[in-house]
Amino acid sequence: MHLSTDIFIWIAALLTLCIYSFLYKDNPFYKFAEHLLVGVSAGYLFVIYFWNNMWPNLLIPLRDGFGILLTEGRFTGNLAALVPGTLGLLLLTRLIPKIGWISRWAFGFYFGAFQGIVITGYMQAFILAQVYGTFMKGGNPVFSLVLMGDFFTRPAWGPFVLAVSGPLMIAGVVCTLTYFFFSTEHRGFAGGVAKVGIVFLMIGFGASFGYTVMARVSLLIGRLQFLIRDWLGLIS
């Protein structure tokens, strides 16, 4: 056992234990770590935002522009930076209740502009590309009688998967979409198709659950490794 002599590893290890103490119940150690984490992260992220966004995109272009204006009498800065800058300042009007309503202009611009920009991207990526991907894979149709014929002439696992996966995928997409059709009751034929859709969804969620749990376990292992190896020195 070689206990770490690095003060920062000790701090990290003790804070890790403070957070894990929540597994027992809420306690002052957890409260301390929680408040520290919230406070430090909020402050740290504010500084990151300032230096990564406001400084290079707003303050530097204006500072340089106005600097040249004062010394050479001409403005070379990016005046367009004033638009988001002004909108950002409008958000701060919320701090003054009497004129707080002005902040809604900035919100309106933000939401409106963003929705306009993303609408084509969504249509392309989430609708057209998905429909195309349901039919075609790598330029070849996923559902073809030729693939089925291959399986019957050469019965084996590989051709079977190739022959079945396409129709299964198309059926899954159609049934799942039917489940998310809200304009009709899930009764009769539509109800049956929607039920099959739910089965497809649950199989998908089950697979996703197992996969993600494995990823979470690996995170836990990483943290335990830190405690046992880096802090306590029990393993090398």
């Binding site: 957070i19 119940k25 992260s41």
Partner: peptide
Amino acid sequence: FYVTTSQFGYVAAVDGIMVR
């Protein structure tokens, strides 16, 4: 109210709110 823009900092705070 605003908590923090850190994923697990936010989780720690919301968990704290739930138990308190």
